[in-house]
Deep mutational scan, measured.
Amino acid sequence: MQGVVKVNSALNMRSGPGSNYGVIGTLRNNDKVEIIKEVDGWYEIRFNGKVGYASKSYITIVN
């Protein structure tokens, strides 16, 4: 499943599904990501070869 990031500035990509996990990357508005699965309001995603987590509130699913 594919998604597009929708933010005003930047979205942190984290090592786990929560804001208490470390930041491993930064996503920008309109970045395209691969959604692997949903975990407690977060998406596990793949972006630029990295796998991490981002809040699903800021990612819109596209077909």
Rank of each mutant, 00 (worst) to 15 (best):
K50F: 14
K56H: 10
K37F: 08
I61L: 13
K6R: 11
E34R: 05
I35R: 00
A54Q: 02
V62H: 08
A10Q: 08
V4N: 05
S15M: 06
N8W: 06
K37A: 09
E38D: 07
M13A: 05
L11Y: 07
G16W: 02
V51A: 12
V4E: 12
T26H: 13
L11R: 06
G22E: 15
N63I: 13
N12E: 10
G22Q: 11
R14S: 07
S57F: 08
R14H: 10
E34P: 03
I36G: 04
G18N: 05
Y53V: 00
I61R: 05
Q2T: 10
D31V: 06
I35F: 04
W42C: 03
K56F: 05
G41F: 06
T60G: 10
I45A: 03
G3W: 03
V33T: 03
G22W: 13
A10I: 15
G52A: 13
G41T: 12
Y21N: 04
I35E: 00
V51Q: 10
Y53Q: 00
N48A: 13
K56G: 10
P17M: 02
W42G: 00
K6I: 12
S55A: 12
I35S: 01
G16H: 02
V4H: 06
G22D: 09
A10M: 14
K56Y: 05
G52D: 00
N30S: 11
V33P: 03
I24T: 11
Y21S: 04
Q2M: 12
S57W: 08
N29V: 05
R46C: 05
V4F: 06
I61A: 09
T60M: 06
S55M: 14
G49Y: 11
A54F: 03
V33G: 01
N12Y: 14
N8A: 07
P17W: 01
N29C: 04
D31I: 04
V39A: 07
K50Q: 10
R28T: 08
M13H: 02
V33R: 00
G41Y: 05
T26S: 10
E44N: 11
G41C: 05
E34V: 08
W42N: 02
E44F: 11
M13V: 12
M13I: 13
V7K: 10
Q2A: 08
R46E: 13
G16R: 02
V62F: 09
L27N: 00
I61S: 06
A54S: 09
S19F: 13
K32Y: 09
V51I: 14
I36C: 04
V33F: 04
I45M: 08
Q2N: 08
E44A: 12
G16A: 03
G18W: 01
S55Q: 14
M1G: 11
S9Q: 13
K32D: 07
G49D: 13
M13W: 08
V23D: 04
S19L: 14
L11S: 05
N48G: 12
E44T: 04
S9F: 15
Q2W: 14
W42I: 01
E38Y: 06
V39R: 09
L11C: 05
K6P: 02
G3S: 03
S57D: 15
T26M: 15
N8G: 14
T60N: 13
Y21P: 00
T60S: 09
V33S: 00
I61F: 06
I35P: 01
Y43G: 00
I36K: 06
G41N: 12
G52N: 01
N48H: 14
G52W: 01
N30F: 09
Y58H: 08
Y21V: 01
S57V: 12
K50S: 13
W42F: 10
Y53N: 01
G49P: 03
I36L: 15
K32G: 11
K37S: 11
I61N: 08
I36Q: 10
V39T: 08
Y21H: 07
V51K: 12
G16F: 02
D31S: 06
I45E: 00
S15I: 08
G3N: 02
R28H: 13
W42Q: 02
K50A: 14
V62A: 07
N48R: 08
R46S: 09
S19R: 11
E38N: 05
K37T: 13
E38M: 06
G41L: 09
N12S: 12
P17E: 01
D31N: 08
P17K: 02
I45D: 00
I59S: 01
G41R: 06
I24F: 03
E44H: 10
L11Q: 12
G16K: 03
G49V: 08
D31F: 05
E34C: 05
V23N: 04
E34D: 15
N63V: 15
M1Q: 13
N8H: 11
V51E: 08
G22H: 12
V7T: 13
Y43L: 07
T60A: 14
N8C: 05
K56T: 13
V5R: 00
N29S: 13
I61P: 11
E34L: 12
S55Y: 13
I35M: 04
Y53R: 00
G25Q: 11
G52V: 03
N48Y: 08
N48P: 03
E44W: 07
I24C: 04
V7D: 05
D40I: 08
R28C: 05
G16S: 03
G18V: 00
K50T: 15
V62K: 08
V39D: 12
K37G: 08
V5Q: 01
E34Y: 11
P17G: 02
A10F: 11
K50V: 13
N63S: 14
D40F: 11
Y21M: 03
R46T: 09
Y58E: 07
K32R: 11
I24K: 04
N29E: 13
N48D: 12
V7Q: 04
I45T: 03
S15Y: 09
N30G: 14
V33E: 00
E44Q: 14
V33W: 02
Y43K: 01
S57K: 12
G25P: 00
D40N: 09
S15H: 06
K37Y: 07
V5M: 03
G18L: 01
R28S: 14
G49L: 09
N12C: 05
R28K: 12
K56L: 08
G25K: 07
K50W: 08
V62L: 07
G16M: 02
V33K: 00
G22T: 11
T26L: 12
F47M: 07
T60D: 15
N29F: 08
N63Q: 13
M1N: 13
G16L: 02
N8Y: 14
N8V: 15
V4M: 10
I59V: 15
S57P: 15
N63W: 03
V5H: 02
M1K: 12
N30M: 13
I35N: 01
I36H: 08
V4I: 15
N20A: 12
N63M: 06
R46D: 09
